[in-house]
Design a protein around this nucleic acid. Structure first.
Length: 414
DNA sequence: TCTGGGGTCCTAGGACCC
DNA sequence: TCTGGGGTCCTAGGACCC
């Protein structure tokens, strides 16, 4: 029984951009960005100029005048990433995919088949390069967290193995921002205390850390500092919430706009819920007021929701509530709808007495009608495509909106 | 020319129950 | 007839991740 686990973190490099360069050889070696109005991904050649994901297109162009924007081949991203995950699965059944382009592998039991961590990492990188044509970085260590840091250090296109005896030596000089869970706000808060490196973080008293960052994060970081970290690689579970959002620039929040956008969002969300046989009791909306302040309103229902019409009505009510609380704001720039507190099919199909006609109550005539109408619409769409029937997609500055195929990449399994 | 979209987890206060 | 403590659920906001 091995006392120590061996965990790998495999992470495709500048994934979307690498796929574009794979598909079109004339793009190789050049600074490119996937996207347009906003940068969804940048190649390493572009990153050298400071171009980053999430950045607006004009800003990226200003940093890197030679930048080429390419339209996304979103289906290809999914297909190629799935192929990579299959390769990973050849080395161990213990693969935890954490996003489209990265995964943890527990290879503790694979060492007798494939050799030490360094050999496994090397073999994975060769196979992904030879069989799929993409660069991938790999980190290896005794915990997930450390393996992930190692792969970040390995990038681009590298392999870093942290031997168990040299963990402190490896970690201490690294910036705290490499620690999972430390973002800009926490990094700033730590910097104000003179903490910049992981070594300095480790030396900081646990109590003070908790006082500074709150119980959960403080405890987590304290545990991390002494390497008492979560190391179990779980296989992937199901999502616990489903949502959709749409940004549309500054608009006056008139009732018509709100109904149109929410109808569209609710359609996406409820459609995915029905497709996976789930429904959720809590409906949350988010309203963003320019430039970036957002408020949320939520409502937990007695019965789980999965029809577009019901979800739209609830969301509309919540949005109007939020707007009423912020009458001073004359414009909004984003609406979001999400459903949580999910339950499975069995819990949805409750038979209840058919008394008052409440659209949210399972078994009521109205609920059955809605459900049936939308299920038949789902069926038509399945055969003839999403656009064939149903809620007209909202014609809001279409150049700003992101294609459905791109949205699908970010969806978690329901 | 301002900043996309899909998620998870934590905190804090209040309601309510035992 | 005042007080207490714990647990659970809900709501709103926020940090963070990819």
């Amino acid at each position: 029984m091995p006392a120590q686990a061996t965990i790998l973190h495999a992470d495709l490099d500048a994934f979307y951009a690498s796929v574009e360069q794979l598909l079109d050889p004339t793009l190789r070696g050049r600074p490119i960005a996937v996207g347009g109005g906003v940068v969804l991904a940048a190649s390493y050649e572009a990153k050298r100029f400071g171009v980053q994901g999430g950045m607006s297109g004009w800003m990226a162009k200003r940093l890197c005048p030679g930048l080429t924007f390419v339209g996304g081949h979103f289906r290809e991203y999914q297909r190629l990433a799935d192929q990579v995950m299959e390769v990973l699965g050849d080395f161990t059944p213990w693969v935890q995919r954490i996003s489209i382009d990265e995964a943890f592998l527990d290879v503790t039991g694979s060492v007798h088949l494939f050799g030490p961590p360094h050999a496994i990492g090397t073999r994975i990188r060769e196979r992904v390069r030879d069989e799929i044509g993409l660069p991938i970085s790999v980190g290896a260590a005794t915990t997930k967290h450390l393996a992930k840091i190692a792969s970040q250090v390995a990038k681009p296109d590298g392999l870093v193995v942290v031997p168990p005896s040299r963990e402190r030596e490896f970690l201490d000089p690294l910036p705290v921002s490499l620690v999972w869970g430390i973002g800009p706000v926490t990094r700033q808060r730590l910097a104000e205390r003179g903490i910049h490196t992981i070594g300095e973080l480790a030396a900081y008293p646990d109590q003070s850390l908790r006082a500074l960052l709150g119980r959960a994060l403080g405890t987590k970081l304290a545990a991390f500092a002494v390497n008492h970290d979560e190391r179990r690689v779980r296989r992937n579970g199901r999502a616990s919430s489903v949502g959709a959002q749409s940004a549309f620039g500054r608009r006056e929040p008139d009732a018509e706009l709100i109904r149109a956008v929410l109808g569209h969002l609710a359609d996406r969300v409820a459609g995915r819920l029905r497709a996976s046989g789930r429904a959720g009791r809590t409906v949350t909306v988010r309203v963003r007021f320019p430039p970036l302040n957002a408020v949320t309103r939520s409502s937990t229902r007695r019965y789980p929701v999965s029809t577009t019409l019901t979800l739209t009505e609830i969301a509309e009510h919540l949005v109007h509530q939020a707007l009423a609380d912020h009458r001073d704001r004359s414009e909004i720039s984003l609406l979001a709808v999400s459903v949580s507190n999910l339950v499975g099919e069995a819990a949805i199909q409750l038979e209840l007495p058919l008394l008052p006609d409440d659209a949210e109550r399972p078994g009521s005539r109205e609920a059955v009608n809605r459900w049936a109408a939308e299920r038949s619409m789902d069926a038509v769409r399945e055969r003839f495509g999403r656009e064939s029937v149903g809620y007209a997609s909202v014609a809001l500055s279409p150049r700003q909106s992101v294609p459905d195929d791109f949205r699908a990449l970010a969806e978690h399994d329901l």
